[in-house]
């Protein structure tokens, strides 16, 4: 798509906003509509757009398989470990109350962390799936 200069420029312009919007949806998830799942998809959509315009190779340079895999596993790990942290602090699994001084702040922080894990995993999985299809060749 090298010849479509307009697309390339606009993509570069849009990309930060898409990612920013993704982050907004992510971190605003505990107050308004949104959350890790949607944010992850939006985040991944930004990279998909990038790879559509600049080519898969370029996108893979930004997001190598190793990082994706780490994100994929790390997100789940964050989710699970936040739950365990609650256990250690003396509450039930995924009961965020003891994470902070007050119950409200505790719940806030817990959901925030868990959603982070979810977002990370979803974004990584989306990208992995996309790359898998994009680089797939008939043997």
């Amino acid at each position: 798509m090298k010849e479509y200069l307009v697309l390339r420029v606009i993509t570069k312009l849009l990309l930060p906003f898409i990612l920013l919007f993704g982050l907004y949806v992510q971190f605003h998830g505990d107050f308004g509509p949104g959350g890790g799942f949607q944010a992850g998809v939006i985040f991944a959509a930004g990279f998909v757009l990038y790879s559509l315009v600049y080519g898969v190779a370029a996108a893979q340079k930004v997001l190598p398989t190793g990082i994706l895999r780490a994100g994929l596993a790390g997100g789940v790990l964050i989710y699970a470990l936040v739950g365990v942290a609650n256990l250690i602090l003396g509450a039930n699994y995924l009961e965020y109350t003891p994470l902070a001084d007050t119950m409200k702040e505790g719940q806030h922080l817990g959901i925030f962390l868990v959603e982070l894990g979810v977002g990370l995993t979803v974004a990584s999985v989306m990208m992995t799936v996309y790359f898998t299809f994009a680089t797939w060749r008939e043997d």
Binding site: L72, A73, G74, G75, V76, L77, A80, L87, N92, Y93
Partner: peptide, 19 residues
């Protein structure tokens, strides 16, 4: 917390294997 741990342990270890 055993009822939770019994499923959480493999859940934590699965991504650990990947990492």
């Amino acid at each position: 917390h055993l009822p939770a741990l019994v499923i959480v342990i493999p859940l934590i270890c699965a991504p650990l294997c990947v990492l």
